[in-house]
Each structure stands twice: as C-alpha cells, then as structure tokens.
Design a protein around this nucleic acid. Structure first.
Lengths: 221, 221
DNA sequence: CGGCAATTCAAACCGCGGTTCGATTCAAAT
DNA sequence: ATTTGAATCGAACCGCGGTTTGAATTGCCG
C-alpha cells in the first residue's frame, strides 16, 4: 500500500529497465519513520533517528526522499488509503442492516490499528504539518471515510435501528475519536487481544447509538 | 488556576513587598502560548510567535520563563488541575447513582473544554514532551481523574446500573477519548452550543454503558 | 576483469529558533 | 531630581538538525 517513492532520482528516467530498484528498502524506511514519529512526534523526530534504524547515515536517506515531509505523507496517506480500502470492503455489505455494517467497520478499522500500531496516532497528530496540497489529498480521503460511516448512521436512524434522537455528525465524530484513541492507550498483550478489544468497542458504540449490540454478529468475510 | 511563575528572578528575594508584580501578564502569556501550541503543535511553535501575540520580543519572554517547556507545563498541568477540580466537585455527589454521577462528570468536563478550547488538545498531544519529572506530576493527576471515572463505572456495574459485560478499563478510556476528541472537531456556533453537545455526548456514553440515558437528569448545582 | 549504475558515506553547509546578556525605558518611591 | 527596580529591547550567540554534494563503495552484467 505504501505509496511508491514517486519521482526519484535517475530511477529510470529515460533508460534502464525499472527492475532491480529499491524493493522493500522503501518500506523499511517508512516503517522506521513510523516508529520514530510515533515515539517522538513528527517535529521532534530526527532524520538521523530514522536513518540509524535502518542502518544508514542521515544524509543517505535523501537518496530515497526529497524531504522529511515525504515520510510523513507516506505514513499518513498510506494509513488513510487503508481506511478507504475498509470503506470499499464495507460497501459490499450494503444489503446488511446498519448495525451489522457499522460493526464490521469497527472490526476492520481496529484490524488496521493492530496491523499498523502507531500509524493512526501519527495521522491524527501530525496531519496538519503536511503542506496544503498533500493535506488536501488526505483530507479528501478522510472525508470519504467519514461520510461512509455517517451514511450508515443516518440509514440506521431512518430504518429505526438507531435512536432517532442522536445527531449523526456528533456520533460519527465520537466513533472516530474512540477508534483512533485506541492506539494511544491499548497495548495488546496479557489480558486482551485486538479481537477482544474490538468486541468490546463494537458493543459500546452500537449500544451508544441505541442499537441492540447482540442483534448483529461479526460479519467479516 | 494557572500555576504561578514559581521561582522567578529577584521577585522579592529578600526585599521589596511582593506587591505590584507581574499581575495577569503571566496569564496573558500562557493564553498566548496555548493558542500557538494548539495551532502549530508544541515543537513547531516558536517562542517568537508567542511573544508577538502579547506584544513582546522573543527575548523578553525569558523574563517570565526559564524555558519554552515552562509554558507547556503551565498549560498541561493547569488543565489537569481543572480536571482534578471537577473530580473533587463530583465527589460531593457520591450519594447519587452512578449514571447521574457520570453524567455530571461529562457535563463538567465539557465545561472545561468550552472554557479552554485547545488546552485539552495540547495536553493530549504534547504531554510526552515534558521532562520526566514534570510529566510524572501530570500523570499522577491524570491517573486520579481516570480512577475517579473508573470507580463510577465499576460501581455502576456492581449496582446493576450498567451492563455487566463491559470492561471498566476499556470504557473509561473510550470515554476520555470521546471527551478529549471533542476539542479537535467541535466548533461551537451555528447549530450547536457546548451545552447541547454535552447533552448528546452524555446520552451516547451512558447508553454505551447500558444505562438508560433518561433515568438521570443533569445534576449540576 | 572492467564498467556502469545503484547505493551509501563523509563532510560540510546553513538557516532557524531557543537562549543569553548588557543596555534602555518607564514608573513609582525617596 | 535622583534612585531603584521592574519590564522590555536589541542584538548576538550557538547548537541542532534538515539538506546538499561529491566522493567512495558495492554489486551486477557483460
């Protein structure tokens, strides 16, 4: 998923077959950047830290990037792309009832969190430090994801699955706050796995909307 | 509430009557810092920005502070102190039932948000950038606040007010994620006031816990 | 083996921003 | 007036860290 390095040096400008290039080195670097950004925050993270984590000198990183912000964008945009994927998967369930669809969304979203711990936190924290153009790209994806959830909520209200008194905009925000907040306090281990956590969160959210949390089972294919 | 500047220069070391000192200048500066930190994040915020906002040159700020971090601490710790105050107010309601107590907490917490928009976001975002000692001070307050809510939840479960299947630790975290997330998307205005928002959030949370949101009214004195 | 390209090193550059410090201003007190 | 100290200025300092650049490597291909 990680967006390709895009226009890189003489990557194959007009000549060599684009094979044998930077294979997963790019992913290693993005992962390292993700760890460091998560730990220290984007602004406080040093290029040197990231480079050291993949066994390079800081200057060498610039063979792969044009600026520090490239790494932030790769992470933030990549994470949102995974969110879009979840939405597209969810669209396939349109025949199911709203609680089931929303429950599936929660499960899958937490699945993303478990696969990329820290990334969601970065996306929330440091989105604003992207330049306007890139920020717009991310905001667009974010809006589509948000819209997807809000539509389910509104549909649920219309069908009587959810309480009629709730405000779709507010609860949608609440939902994302709950989901994205998870990565900041949950550490999978001892007592709970991500799957068990998802179960609890799903019930909390569905109940919060006024739905019977037992009426819909996990609907992951 | 804003913690006094502590040990300042020759504030009154052994001489003049400690009157006629920096009165609310300190508060002005902290407020300015709050705005800038909220907008740009602590690391990206410049001392110069803060100084300019109160009509000073950046160097002049050091008459009031010893380091940039002093300002972060003033904001983060101050916000948590207000949280502690809410907890202490809430302790007076111990005779009420758990849903009422929790509802009151939600209302008052959102009251803090409305009075200090942005501060909560800073506290969540940049807590980790305080030095260990100060961080510990804040974490202690945070733990006490967290404990207060969790106790209510556990009490509610024991009394049958809340669903027995919920995990107190998880829902407590979920609750704070919902509350603190508010300051990042909610802009009081057109459609909704903070009071109306609090109403929605209170119902969402209480219902999420399995309680009847209508069983308890707002209980603010 | 020789060569070319992909990759990394090593060192310097350089601007930004936190911090320091002596000089200056202003107001109240003497 | 003169003194005194609070408050601010003005300018320099200085280290950190992002970025640049040209010189090594390394490894593949012929």
């Amino acid at each position: 998923m990680a967006v390709a390095p895009e226009r890189r040096r003489p990557i194959g400008e007009g000549g060599r077959p684009p094979g044998t290039l930077r294979p997963e080195r790019w992913n290693e670097i993005v992962d390292a950047a993700g760890d460091v950004f998560d730990e220290k925050g984007y602004a406080a993270a040093r290029i040197e830290d990231i480079a050291a984590r993949v066994g390079l000198l800081k200057g060498s990183l610039y063979y792969y990037i044009d600026s520090k912000e490239d790494l932030l964008f790769a992470i933030v945009d990549g994470n949102h792309s995974r969110g879009i994927a979840v939405v597209e998967q969810g669209a396939a369930l349109e025949s199911a009832d709203p609680p089931t669809r929303l429950g599936a969304f929660v499960d899958r979203w937490i699945g993303i969190l478990s696969a990329n711990p820290g990334y969601a936190a970065i996306a929330e924290r440091d989105l604003r430090r992207l330049d306007p153009e890139r920020q717009a790209i991310v905001m667009d994806k974010r809006a589509r994801i948000h819209r997807f959830v809000r539509d389910i909520v509104e549909d649920g209200i219309a069908r009587g699955c959810f309480d009629a008194g709730i405000d779709p905009g507010i609860v949608t925000n609440n939902l994302f706050d709950v989901l994205n907040g998870i990565s900041q306090w949950f550490h999978p281990a001892r007592p709970l796995t991500y799957e068990q956590l998802a179960e609890h969160v799903r019930r909390f959210v569905l109940r919060g909307l006024g739905a019977d949390p037992d009426a819909s089972g996990t609907a992951l294919p």
